[in-house]
Design a protein around this nucleic acid. Structure first.
Lengths: 339, 339
DNA sequence: TATTGGCACTCAGGTAGTGCGAGTGCTAGT
DNA sequence: ACTAGCACTCGCACTACCTGAGTGCCAATA
């Protein structure tokens, strides 16, 4: 058990370090805060904290810097969530009004989040898992090409061009469309595969080959979107905070450019307290992000979490305000999707 | 008129500088190349070149570095275009096979280009100007929502959700769809606005309001895509080449994150010789790109240039191979779109 | 006239020495 | 349990100095 005052000292160290970006020493600590004790006492406290690996001295005669573990304790137990300023709230509402389709809403959201936090922001496209099929369309786009459109009740629209091996007549296409909707509308995407198992049996043998092509494409759609997509904004903020990253920022840039890495990361992160989840420094399994922290929160539609959004920045970030911003934006996005 | 040998010297300076990233001096120049004259003579030549502002000495006792103007002369008159290596060609063909829709093709292309050049690559989405309407679809997506889909003969598919003020019946939607196709199919997008001028007159007064909503949305589609979109890849390459940018890379990152800037830049650039166009350093009107060079080339569909693609990198880039790569990728993309 | 060898000069960058000061740990005293 | 004091550490900023690549110019040469 760590005594109360030690925690106070840790909190002070984290706050000062975030603000000044300099290792913080015992003396400057006592003069910036009202501890009511001398620097020597604080030094003893700091020795304890170092023992616990919550802080660390870059070299003998320097101040202390929080470790990943220290930040973790800070956010878990000590960081109060800063309320947003009025202007920030205004910015959020402004951004949210008058966006129509999903693409645009998410695009706005990610830019908003990046501006609010001055970090790299990311928004994951909704997971289709719990969503249901609302409508499926098949449209002739050229002789042997049909356009498949899948609309879900989360408001998402996906399209894909299917290249058929034969020229289908309009009638047959209409028939396929009808039967697809008949058997799938209202069902969850997760069930689509099962429903389509013997779908081709409904058609004349001569048409089956083409039908299979179409159902396969539909399954691809469902599947391709299980693995999802993430959009980013504010990459330039990384470069601006370059000094905050020991070494180079290029591993970080590489990591976030790689959708696969980000998706893995985001899906692994389950909400902890406050409704947000974070990974600090080396807690990120991925090497390139060992100097970065990730803050994410889920957003919802119809009461279910459908995807996540968040920010990525240096471990030495202002957790309080970033957490607040991520939470707020997630809440507003949930609201925007409710309409 | 600049004498032949001076140009040879300039070429040698540019090549050496690109390779070594060090200012190049007269002595190293004569020992790396067979000029058949002494370093003193070269020094005289270099003095001439400096007079012409083609090269520049960072400080008194350093070698010379090409200026923007020097690079310009180099690419215009001296740079032979390096043929691609066999493995590069293989990479291109590999990347191109088996991509179905436009989104995916362009996505692959931009990643390919970035890998080939190790620079930031960009691909502009096709301009709709010369494209023609192939098909328009209207699909009921919810009670008061219809999905408008516009398919053009460039293979592009756009969609947008329209929020209507009333609940339309299926019949009416089908009628609108029919008439839209009747009056627009086959026409160039540029003519759509004119064709739709009195379109609502075709319908019963009670329906007109909704019809107007739909035609307006259609015009938005056409228009929104006149202003286009650019996709990027390989941003991490910037960070990796950080030393190549005097100062910081963050203005560059900011510039390329800003679609508007990029689009303006790209549309301004008209093909010069070789079928490529380039802006070197300060030739880019945009401040943030004054240490960057941009290489672009158009790609075509059905004989018309429909959009551009290219790379962005430090002024000190390997122009020969980047130009070759951009040209090749543009050619392959043109071919891929032909199918 | 073009080229060359020679020479004095310049200057960025590396290396070494120095002092300062922020910060520490420890100990003895309150 | 806290504090004052003190000796010690060590990164950093500063200075001085040296080195070497590179230049410009000039007089000699082919």
């Amino acid at each position: 058990m760590i005594p109360e005052r030690s925690l106070e000292v840790l909190r002070a160290i984290v706050n000062d370090y975030i603000q000044t970006k300099e290792p913080v020493g015992s003396k400057s600590l006592v003069e910036r805060h009202q501890f009511g004790v001398s620097s020597a006492t604080i030094r003893n406290e700091m020795a304890m904290l170092e023992e616990e690996e919550l802080i660390h001295a870059p070299h003998t005669s320097a101040g202390r810097v929080p470790t990943d573990k220290g930040y973790r304790l800070f956010v878990d137990r000590l960081g109060e969530v800063k309320p947003l300023s009025a202007s920030e709230k205004a910015a959020i509402s402004n951004f949210m009004i008058g966006s129509a389709d999903l693409d645009e809403t998410l695009g706005r959201t990610v830019r908003l989040l990046s501006q609010l936090t001055n970090q790299v922001a990311m928004v994951q496209y909704p997971t289709l898992g719990r969503a249901r099929v609302r409508n499926i369309e098949l449209i002739q786009a050229a002789d042997t090409r049909v356009l498949l459109i899948l609309i879900t009740d989360s408001g998402r629209i996906q399209q894909h061009v299917i290249e058929l091996s034969e020229n289908l007549d309009v009638q047959l296409i209409a028939e396929i469309r009808g039967k697809l909707n008949e058997s799938l509308t209202g069902f969850a995407l997760g069930d689509v595969a099962a429903k389509l198992l013997n779908f081709a049996q409904n058609f004349a043998p001569s048409a089956r080959q083409q039908v299979v092509l179409i159902t396969e494409s539909l399954l691809d759609q469902v599947d391709a979107n299980r693995q999802e997509k993430i959009i980013l904004a504010g990459t330039a903020n990384l470069a601006r905070r370059e000094q905050d990253f020991p070494g180079s920022i290029s591993p970080v840039l590489e990591a976030i450019e790689e959708q696969v890495v980000l998706l893995k990361l985001v899906t692994e992160m389950q909400a902890e307290q406050h409704g947000v989840s974070l990974r600090i420094g080396r807690e990120n399994a991925f090497e390139g992000l060992s100097n970065a922290s990730v803050v994410v929160s889920g957003y919802e539609n119809q009461g279910n979490e459908i995807a996540k959004l968040g920010v990525i920045g240096p471990t030495r970030m202002d957790y309080s305000s970033n957490i607040a911003a991520v939470k707020a934006v997630a809440r507003y996005l949930t609201k925007a999707l409710g309409n």
